[in-house]
């Protein structure tokens, strides 16, 4: 495929990853931090930025590792383990670098980075990229788009939940209960985008 076509495909993939096939609201990946860290907009911004950075970077690294290492040895079925350890090592590494060279950034992202290692949206994005057989350039767009979509969803949820604190919710639904119901409603709204692409 020529580069220009790939670039176009990358943009389309990126857009669809944000809206029509949002990794959180259509695939329901990364629900754990989505329900637990969405109490305040401020913290969700921090977590969202960390996810954008880590997801974009790890999908790229994993693409290289998958196509140049696993395929070479014919060990594609090991991708789960490989992706996980690469993500974990990468997050560790990034945390160390940020801590050393940019204390200000570390303040903002530092506490969220370790949380992300176990965020299944990150692993999910790497696995989808393999299943869907994306090229490297498209993978970049997909990783970035998915993470932006995830951030968008958690921000929206945080905004709603901040208002929710002032309303009366039946005792049994307080906390994660109402959050999941809202997530479902948001997912319904996002399905409305499906026709766009």
């Amino acid at each position: 495929m020529p580069i220009s076509e790939q670039m176009w495909l990358m943009l389309v993939t990126c857009f669809s990853a944000v809206f029509t096939s949002n990794i959180l609201l259509t695939y329901f990946l990364g629900m754990c931090p989505f329900t637990s860290v969405s109490r305040e907009v401020k913290t969700s911004v921090g977590l969202g930025l960390a996810v954008i950075f880590v997801m974009t970077a790890t999908t790229m690294i994993n693409w290289v590792a998958y196509h140049y290492v696993l395929e070479y040895f014919g060990l594609e079925y090991f991708r789960f383990i490989l992706f996980i350890i690469i993500i974990a090592a990468f997050v560790q590494f990034v945390e160390m670098v940020i801590d050393r060279y940019s204390p200000r950034l570390y303040q903002g992202l530092g506490i969220f980075l370790p949380l992300i290692t176990v965020n299944c949206a990150i692993l999910g994005a790497s696995l989808f990229m393999v299943i869907r057989d994306y090229s490297f350039i498209v993978t970049v767009g997909y990783g970035f788009g998915s993470s932006v979509g995830w951030t968008l969803a958690i921000l929206a949820m945080a905004g709603i939940r901040q208002r929710l604190t002032e309303s009366r919710i039946p005792a049994g639904l307080q906390g994660p209960g109402i959050t999941l119901i809202i997530a479902g409603l948001m997912a319904l709204a996002f399905i409305g985008f499906t026709g766009v692409l």
Partner: peptide, 18 residues
Amino acid sequence: FISVLVISSIGGVLALLL
């Protein structure tokens, strides 16, 4: 044999890097 070797060497390299 190869799979064990490859995965553990990747793990080893990453650990060394860290």
